[in-house]
Amino acid sequence: MPKSRFNGIFKLVFRIFKLGFILFFGLSLFGVLLFRFVRPPFTWLMIERGFQQKARGVDWKIDKQWVSFDEISDNMKRAAVAAEDQSFLEHHGFDFKAIEKAIEKNAHSKRLIGGSTISQQVAKNVFLWEGRSLLRKGIEAYFTVLIEVFWSKKRIMEMYLNEIEMGDGIYGIEAASQAYFHKHASDLTKHEAAAIAVIFPSPLKWSATNPTRYLKHRQYLIMKNMKRLGPLDF
């Protein structure tokens, strides 16, 4: 192949790559800034779960009711922090100590333990698809940095508790509160909030109202951590 032709192909590929990078950066930044003020109408996970439901021969179900930060029980906010990310208000998106501990535990255990912060989970739930590839984790880290820069911790927590999957077709704390305890998210007790928080890692397998012995123990630990937490100054 002539050198001039090779250089031409290389320049074309480079331009395409450069354009794709600029487009991705612009759209991702726009999305993060938009969702700083606007509620996401859906997430990729909701679409994926909908197709899985149709494949099982059941109706597509998305039970989701947005509630503002102030309409969510303080007990639920404390339970989420106690269960998922106790340094949420201190870190800038990543808890490197938790990641290190997760790596050590996963090396000696069959049960995979995640080290993701609430900010990382929001990045995944709102902007990305399910998966464990290095590419997806890298993009997740990128979106985590963006939301930490452009959103407040209050907004991150509000988004987390409104978008997280909490059961089969159940998304967000208001829908979960109504489904499990027949009350508004603002009225959740400490015990109820801990019962919901305990199923966050596997909401399709675990039940907030019919917990196993393992989940009851986890609920007890979450309630202990809720007491230990200092004031949550959002």
Rank of each mutant, 00 (worst) to 15 (best):
R5F: 12
G8T: 09
I9N: 13
K11M: 12
L12A: 14
V13L: 15
V13K: 06
F14Q: 15
F14H: 01
F14V: 10
R15T: 13
R15W: 14
R15A: 14
I16K: 09
G20C: 14
F21L: 15
F21E: 05
F24Q: 12
G26A: 15
S28A: 15
S28G: 11
S28P: 10
L33E: 06
L34F: 13
P40R: 06
W44I: 15
W44C: 02
L45W: 05
L45N: 07
M46I: 11
I47P: 07
R49Y: 09
G50E: 02
F51G: 09
F51H: 08
K54I: 13
R56Q: 15
R56Y: 07
G57H: 07
G57S: 11
D59A: 15
W60Y: 13
I62K: 03
I62A: 00
D63F: 12
D63G: 00
W66A: 06
V67L: 06
V67K: 04
F69S: 09
I72E: 06
I72L: 05
D74T: 03
K77F: 09
A79V: 10
A79P: 08
A80N: 04
E84Y: 04
D85W: 02
S87W: 14
S87M: 10
L89M: 12
L89G: 06
E90A: 14
G93D: 02
F94T: 04
D95L: 05
A102Y: 02
A102V: 04
I103P: 01
N106V: 10
H108I: 10
H108D: 10
G114Y: 03
G114K: 05
G114T: 13
G114N: 03
G115H: 02
G115E: 07
G115A: 11
S119F: 05
Q120P: 07
Q121R: 03
V122D: 05
V122F: 06
A123V: 10
K124V: 06
N125L: 00
N125T: 11
F127S: 00
F127N: 08
W129F: 12
E130D: 15
S133V: 10
L134N: 09
K137M: 07
G138C: 07
E140Q: 12
A141E: 05
F143D: 01
T144Y: 07
L146E: 04
I147V: 05
E148Y: 04
E148L: 02
F150H: 01
W151A: 07
S152R: 01
K153H: 09
K154E: 14
K154R: 15
E158W: 01
N162Y: 08
N162L: 08
I164C: 02
G167Q: 07
D168R: 13
I170F: 02
A175F: 04
A176V: 00
Q178P: 03
A179S: 10
Y180P: 10
Y180V: 12
F181G: 04
F181T: 06
F181H: 03
H182F: 12
K183H: 09
S186G: 08
D187C: 13
L188P: 05
L188H: 08
L188G: 00
E192H: 02
A194F: 05
F200E: 01
F200S: 02
P201I: 03
S202M: 10
P203T: 00
P203S: 01
L204P: 01
K205Q: 15
A208N: 03
A208K: 06
P211N: 11
P211F: 09
T212C: 04
R213G: 11
K216V: 00
H217K: 12
M223K: 12
M223H: 11
N225Q: 10
P231A: 12
D233W: 04
D233L: 13
F234T: 00
